[in-house]
């Protein structure tokens, strides 16, 4: 493959990451902290949290989080 194509692919990947509001590292921290708080109130699986953050407009962010209930099997394990 000519290197121009490789460069284009790599750029598309890296730039879409660059444009994300938070780094993958800080997303991980956010998930962990959210999980810690929410698990005090709801019976959730802390490893299965999905979050998306969007800039709604100039002044607002939209943060949505999806939590899964803890499965029975895991309850027994703990």
């Amino acid at each position: 493959m000519a290197s121009g194509k490789t460069a284009t692919q790599r750029l598309k990947n890296v730039i879409s990451k660059d444009r994300e509001l938070l780094s993958s590292g800080s997303i991980r921290v956010l998930k962990k902290e959210l999980g810690n708080i929410v698990s005090k109130f709801l019976d959730i699986d802390k490893r299965k949290i999905q979050i998306t953050i969007e800039e709604a407009d100039q002044k607002n962010y939209n943060l949505s989080a999806n939590f899964q209930k803890k499965s029975k099997a895991e309850d027994e394990m703990e």
């Binding site: 290197s3 121009g4 284009t8 598309k12």
Partner: peptide
């Protein structure tokens, strides 16, 4: 280099 496709083409740069 553009002919040999060894650089990102202007079309692709604009698309990105």
């Amino acid at each position: 280099l553009l002919k040999k496709k060894e650089i990102v083409s202007p079309e692709e740069i604009q698309e990105i």
